[in-house]
Each structure stands twice: as structure tokens, then as C-alpha cells.
């Protein structure tokens, strides 16, 4: 494993920790999109189907279990927890996530590495992950007062994707057989979606002012 990949996994983990911290200690999910969280739960469930079939490494297994458990528990908190769910900004979280599920599934049926159930689900999870952040970005744009944790959460998620791209470039030169066009292209699209957010996040951090996205 290279340094970019490890750093990417760590920022991904950090994003989940930040979100759980917000939910657990502040008992708030303000500014967090339930739509995005549900999409991530689907992404991990679809991608980690190999969990019980292929053993890669202890690291791999533990990380997969962490992402599965955290994503489903976040959804549970936002839907069921009697204090947390009251802080959910339902009125502004209106992105129709069902409309991205179907296109992703169709795309996965058409473009995959192999036409098997697991490979189609893998491709589906890659396409879905690329666009799963959209409801969250829309919600942030509609939120007047973005709290720090919600901003950091999205920043770490974006950083994870950007670091994965560096990891792919590194792997391309060191492991010539390692070519996964599907994840590379989807990963680049996914990272580009954050570009605008990154700009405002870094600007606000540099000028030491509160993060605010233009409507």
C-alpha cells in the first residue's frame, strides 16, 4: 500500500469520525444530508459484497466493516434517534436521490469489467459513490449557517477522493497491470464535484471567516 492510498483511507475515516462525533456528542445532524448518507450505505453494501468471499487483509476487512457499520448507524441516528432526528433539516434536503439510483444501475449493467452479479454491483457502487455527495452539496448551499463540523466532514470526504487519484497515478507506474478505468474515471468526476466546495472552504480558512457558499 502506498502513502497516498493510506492517507486517502485515513481522511475517509476521519470524515466518518467527524460526523459521528457531531451526532454523538452534540446530538445534532444539522447541515447533514440524509439522502447522501443513505446513498453511502447503499454504496458500501453493494461494494463490500466480497467481504465474505475474498479475504484480502485484516486491514481491508476491518476498514470495510467500519464503513458499513458507520454508514448504517448514521442513517439510523438521523431517522430514528429521538433527539438527533429533530435536528435534521428535512425541508432543505430535497434532492431526489431515487433519480440517481436508477441511472447508476443501468450504467453498471452496460459498463462493467465483467457481467457477473458481483462485478455489476461493484461498478454500480463506483458510479453511485461518484454522485452520492450531490444532495449534501445542495443542502450545504441552502444552509445559511454551516457549522464547522459539517464543513470539515465534506472537506475530508473530498480530500479522500483527491488522494485516491494520486494513489492511482502512483499505482499506474508501479503496478502496470493495475488498470481500473471505471473507478478512475468515476473517481475523477467525483473529485471534480468538490472543486467548487474546496475553493470556498480553503478561502474561508485562509481568511479565517465562517464558511458560506453562494446561493
Amino acid at each position: 500500500m502506498n502513502l497516498f492510498r493510506l492517507a486517502g483511507d485515513m481522511t475517509h475515516l476521519l470524515s466518518v469520525v467527524v460526523l459521528l462525533l457531531k451526532i454523538h456528542t452534540i446530538k445534532s445532524c444539522a447541515g447533514i444530508s440524509l439522502k447522501t448518507q443513505e446513498l453511502y450505505a447503499i454504496v458500501f453494501a453493494a461494494r463490500y459484497l466480497d467481504l465474505f468471499v475474498h479475504f484480502m487483509s485484516l486491514y481491508n476487512t476491518i476498514m470495510k466493516l467500519v464503513f458499513l457499520a458507520s454508514s448504517f448507524s448514521i442513517v439510523w441516528y438521523m431517522r430514528q434517534h429521538k433527539i438527533v432526528r429533530r435536528t435534521y433539516d428535512k425541508e432543505h434536503d430535497t434532492f431526489r436521490h431515487q433519480f440517481i439510483l436508477l441511472p447508476c444501475l443501468v450504467l453498471a449493467l452496460l459498463i462493467n469489467e465483467k457481467f457477473t452479479f458481483r462485478e455489476v454491483m461493484w461498478a454500480f457502487s463506483i458510479y453511485l459513490e461518484a454522485v452520492a455527495i450531490l444532495p449534501q452539496l445542495v443542502l450545504l448551499q441552502r444552509t445559511r449557517n454551516i457549522d464547522n463540523l459539517a464543513g470539515h466532514y465534506v472537506f475530508f470526504l473530498g480530500a479522500y477522493r483527491a488522494l485516491y487519484i494520486l494513489n492511482w497515478i502512483y499505482r499506474y507506474f508501479t503496478e502496470p497491470h493495475f488498470v481500473h478505468w471505471i473507478s478512475w474515471i468515476a473517481g475523477i468526476v467525483q473529485t471534480l464535484l468538490y472543486a467548487d466546495f474546496f475553493y470556498y472552504y480553503i478561502t474561508s480558512w485562509k481568511n479565517n471567516v465562517k464558511l458560506e457558499l453562494p446561493a
Binding site: 483511507d9 466480497d50 462485478e119 481500473h180
Partner: peptide
């Protein structure tokens, strides 16, 4: 044949 399962990324 090359094994598909080098999908070690998360």
C-alpha cells in the same frame, strides 16, 4: 488468466 480480484481498494 489474470485474477480479477485485485480489487483491494475501499
Amino acid at each position: 488468466e489474470h485474477e480479477q480480484y485485485e480489487k483491494d481498494e475501499l
